[in-house]
């Protein structure tokens, strides 16, 4: 069964890059432009993994993580949190992410 990955980022370039890499690897990649849209896609498509940007308009990464923790269907879905800010500045507001990836990152990561 094809694994589903959701990329939530307001920067089209980041979403396209992750999409290109993971589609090549055989994943089905969905994208969302902000946290609210991301949560709606999670409820509908139940992704196996979420790449989540920290700074976004409308609803940011920290609010998404809190909403995911409150929902049984999304609590436990692994999240790769992305930010150009250092991890120690964002970690306090962000409960439950699995991996932190600092921007700019390289594909090899």
């Amino acid at each position: 069964m094809t694994r589903v990955v959701l990329v939530v980022d307001d920067e089209i370039g980041i979403a396209e890059l992750i999409d290109a890499v993971l589609t090549d690897e055989g994943y089905r990649v969905l994208t969302a432009v902000n946290g609210r849209q991301g949560l709606a896609i999670m409820a509908k498509d139940h992704p196996d993994l979420v790449f989540l940007d920290y700074m976004m308009p409308v609803m940011d990464g920290a609010d998404v993580l809190r909403a995911m923790a409150r929902d049984l269907s999304t609590d436990g879905v692994p999240v790769v949190l992305m930010s150009s800010m250092p991890e120690d500045l964002v970690a306090e507001r962000c409960p439950g992410y699995a991996v932190f990836m600092r921007k700019p990152f390289r594909i090899a990561q």
Partner: peptide, 19 residues
């Protein structure tokens, strides 16, 4: 901060193309 962000897709797309 703002000039680092757009570098990710630039470098990434070049890496993908090279590979």
């Amino acid at each position: 901060h703002e000039l680092r962000n757009p570098m990710t897709p630039i470098v990434g797309q070049i890496d993908l193309l090279l590979a």
